[in-house]
């Protein structure tokens, strides 16, 4: 099942959740039926003035290459696609927070990719879950890649982001944690991966929990000050989309040159995190699960998202 570019609209549009959800039927999720493209396009709002960065074609090409090159191990497509998606779809965080863009990509531009990448065995049978089409930033097929590239890159260097996306547990666990909104924290996590101090999926989860928990008593911003990214440089990079050609398929592209994460701050956190990770008692346990081992224990209340 492949989509040819003839069928596609030229520009990305905004597809509301309520419209997208309506067509996420069981047969669409199972891949037995394509989402009704015309109805979806009709239900979308155009982006305003056309611009190169809203062009569908380069994105579709990347997706096709990703599927071709990574069919053997589909999860590896994430590390390849994330930086290239980010460098091609040049948008602000404000724009990226609008779920309608991601709905449009998943439902209209590349529903085949969503199924290719995420179809799997579920309680309801062999299918993709709805949140891969319409969902939170760390679940939705394209949003999670874009945000991973955005949060783990170091200025214009996508290498840390590529590394982060090589580990599915980073994408699944770390990406949802608010602690990585602090750039030195995100950079330090990848540094631990680079150093090989953290290897397995279990390691990543343990590290994530340790950092997330210690954030209840440590103010990372004070231990490891960040410098605010240069908004003008980013703006320039976005505007340059008009002149940019397609990204290289073999070399990493360059991201917005909005400033590197301060090295001293990263070093400090690497030291701290390594220590937290080494001291975490639960890490020694062979049982993969954290906690008492009883599931459905109930929920914890109050302040599930706190800046500190």
């Amino acid at each position: 099942m492949s989509t040819t570019s003839r069928d596609l609209p030229e520009q990305i549009a905004l597809l509301p959740d309520v419209v997208a959800s309506r067509y996420l039927t069981h047969s669409v999720l199972a891949g037995r039926e394509r989402p009704p493209q015309l109805a979806l396009i009709r239900g979308s709002e155009p982006m305003g003035t056309p611009a190169a960065r809203w062009t569908v074609e380069p994105l579709r090409q990347l997706i096709d290459v990703a599927m071709r090159r990574h069919d053997g191990d589909r999860a590896t497509a994430d590390a390849w696609l994330a930086p290239r998606l980010h460098a091609t779809l040049r948008i602000t965080r404000r724009e990226a927070a609008d779920t309608r863009i991601w709905n449009f990509l998943a439902m209209v531009v590349a529903p085949d990719y969503v199924l290719w990448r995420h179809k799997g065995v579920t309680k309801e049978g062999d299918r993709a879950t709805t949140d891969r089409f319409v969902g939170l930033h760390y679940k939705q097929t394209f949003a999670r890649l874009w945000w991973a590239a955005e949060l783990f890159r170091d200025g214009d260097d996508y290498e840390p982001a590529r590394l982060a996306c090589e580990n599915q547990d980073v994408l699944n666990t770390m990406l949802r944690l608010a602690v990585i909104d602090h750039r030195p924290t995100a950079r330090a996590v990848v540094r631990l991966l680079e150093k090989g101090l953290v290897r397995t999926g279990r390691d990543v989860n343990a590290l994530g929990t340790a950092i997330n928990t210690a954030a209840g008593t440590l103010v990372y911003d004070v231990l490891a000050p960040d410098e605010a990214p240069d908004a003008d440089s980013r703006r320039y990079w976005i505007d340059e989309a008009e002149n940019a050609g397609p990204v290289s398929l073999d070399n990493l592209p360059f991201g917005p040159d909005d400033g590197c994460v301060p090295g001293d701050s990263v070093d400090e956190l690497v030291r701290r995190f390594a220590q937290l990770f080494a001291e975490a008692p639960v890490r020694g346990k062979e049982e993969g699960r954290i906690g008492t081992g009883r599931s459905n224990e109930g929920v914890s209340l109050d302040k599930t998202y706190s800046p500190f």
Binding site: L177, V179, T209, N212, T213, S300, S306
Partner: peptide, 15 residues
């Protein structure tokens, strides 16, 4: 139940 407080997400339960 005892749990450790976290920045975001669910709190890990402690035995």
């Amino acid at each position: 139940t005892a749990r450790f407080e976290v920045r975001s997400g669910s709190r890990p339960a402690i035995s």
